[in-house]
Design a protein around this nucleic acid. Sequence first.
DNA 1: TTTAAAAGTGAATGAATATTCATTTATCTT
DNA 2: AAGATAAATGAATATTCATTCACTTTTAAA
Lengths: 205, 205
Amino acid sequence: MNIHLSLLPMRTRDTNKENSIRKQAIEMVVKEGLDGFSMQKLAKAAGVSPATLYIYYKDREDLINQIATEISLRLMESSLQGIHPKMSFADGMEIQWKNRLKFYLENMDEMEFIEQIRYSPLYETIRQVIRQKFGDVLGSFVMNAINRGEMMPLPFEVYWAIAFAPLYQLIKFHSQGRSHANDEFTINDEMVNMTLKLVLKALKP
Amino acid sequence: MNIHLSLLPMRTRDTNKENSIRKQAIEMVVKEGLDGFSMQKLAKAAGVSPATLYIYYKDREDLINQIATEISLRLMESSLQGIHPKMSFADGMEIQWKNRLKFYLENMDEMEFIEQIRYSPLYETIRQVIRQKFGDVLGSFVMNAINRGEMMPLPFEVYWAIAFAPLYQLIKFHSQGRSHANDEFTINDEMVNMTLKLVLKALKP
DNA sequence: TTTAAAAGTGAATGAATATTCATTTATCTT
DNA sequence: AAGATAAATGAATATTCATTCACTTTTAAA
């Protein structure tokens, strides 16, 4: 982005505005839900004319989509950091758990934004982008583990359901606990390690 | 509902209308997301005047809340059907898995409706109603299993994350697969049994 | 310093929004 | 049959919505 191949002069984009729009959009969706979000409110919150939003984004749907896609891709890249094909299954799993957890905790607003979109019809496009970009890597990680006898041979969906759904559930408990006084659950490393150990026990042949 | 203590005559409520409103609301939210839902569109789809909606429901938020709460309570009641305190942990788990799966498959639209709400700020109230009504039962089910040495002693959240998140993930894969040609995942009993077995293996001491 | 081009704007548009209100309609008891 | 009451309505309200447009501002190369 922001690279212009043309030799013609032009006004440069204000990255402060770009960031402010992004940040306020995320905050608004998290606080008021997808249906509490509007372009006019966003423009006001970001200190920008409504018309400016349409310079950055084609329309409302495109705005939500671009922001959500960018976050999702960052999450996936983060979660695969430090993964090598030769690595043992248990090590690979532990790294992915740590990576995902770290990303979540460091980007809670972004992740709650994604949660709002994830179950709405808007998310379908993003799901496809992710699958196209990371499907192979994740698939071969599982296949290797099975071939090496480190993991039970399982359909991919069963594997994923056991391997990651519990982590996401813990994170969900954590972020629900954030906003509520009588719900004191807070995630911690010990708990995560405990859960990961159980998950690995389940998947071992 | 529909019980009048007054002795005075009055016009009776049309239950067809009531059901039609409910059904169309669910369908609309599932198809177009929470922010694609509006009172006027609902009124038209249900063949009813907009004003009629305000006889049944205080306002838009109340409408969503009432429908979502009613569905959630039905799910919880279903999932505890046939559960007895003397039952072994494994049996109790299997029954709950079967009950939840059955309810989901028989009420897919309702459940996808709930998914839309679940991550929005609207869901907080419902979460509390559920906890208040079923928290004790679920809590003592876990405590019994631990005391009898049938299950590892775990924080409730860790237990839940391992015990049910994988099931929900499978169901999510299934309902995503429904609408997409190149995504052929379909849930079946064999797969569910396989996953449950792994989960029980993880939780066994 | 001129200038082309994109960035950025405020005000306006028309459609859609939630909700209300003055009426009419259906129902049950008497 | 009469009448009281709540159900049900269509039209109207004021607001908010996404989006557009004619216009001004900023930029950087020439």
